[in-house]
Design a protein around this nucleic acid. Structure first.
Lengths: 123, 123
DNA sequence: TAGGAACCTGACATTGACGTCAGAGGTAGC
DNA sequence: GCTACCTCTGACGTCAATGTCAGGTTCCTA
């Protein structure tokens, strides 16, 4: 498929896809005229990339770990970096759960008292 | 306390604290010479701000919700925004848990096979 | 074969949360 | 009062993942 189709299929912009290629994260075959063509599995890879981005992992780090994620085989160095990312993701989850509790307590208190108190709107 | 102490106490840079004030997130008393002075509770507020930032909430949104988080009273509009942020945090957590599973499956596979296979190092 | 949609490269713009630097003034211990 | 450190404002720099625009080429359908 061409880049536009991949973009609509994955919900990622054309610009972002070209950026992924620029970063070495996503390969493409080129037609004689220079247009990019992708196999079907490219969509999965794009989703994987997005997922790793969402975990706060940089493109350089993704580049490093991507082949391992695909092949399932990693050198010890890459392995330890993966473990590092893993624990950072775990910490992010814990922090977010903390935040969730904060928000929940605010929501609980606010819902109870928003009729009687002085509601705050804009600063 | 002065800004340097607050910075070391919270692990947030002096620059960031001034930025928070610039955004209206953190107030300070000024001495006659113009230096910022903070009460002890400022440290808690800074931590709260950091927590909200970590949840991907923008400074404008934090500014809006901060008084409510402190007082526990919110207007219906702010309340619905808070709910919106809540669900976005929930989604972030779910996404990160997905990523965690991905990383774990990679790690499991890689640990098993990193002696026999062709390890991938740098691209 | 015409014309509009899709694509190309290249380059500059954007956004948010700071980093950093300059030049000047404040604070505190001795 | 000296000295070392702290703080001030203001302004420009950074970084990463895109957005956007320009000027040109390619594809597809009627």
């Amino acid at each position: 498929m061409r880049i536009g189709e991949l973009a609509t299929k994955t919900g990622v912009s054309v610009r972002a896809l070209r950026y992924y290629e620029e970063q070495g994260l996503l390969a493409s075959e080129r037609s004689a005229s220079g247009q990019r063509h992708y196999p079907d599995q490219a969509a999965d890879r794009v989703r994987l990339i997005q997922q790793l981005y969402a975990a706060g992992i940089s493109s350089a780090a993704i580049l490093e770990m991507l082949p391992c994620v695909v092949t399932g085989v990693a050198s010890p160095q890459v392995l330890s970096k993966l473990r590092g990312h893993r624990s950072s993701v775990v910490k992010q989850i814990e922090d977010l759960q903390d935040t969730l509790r904060q928000l929940d307590s605010v929501l609980a208190g606010a819902v109870k008292s928003h009729e009687s108190g002085v509601p705050c709107t804009s600063p």
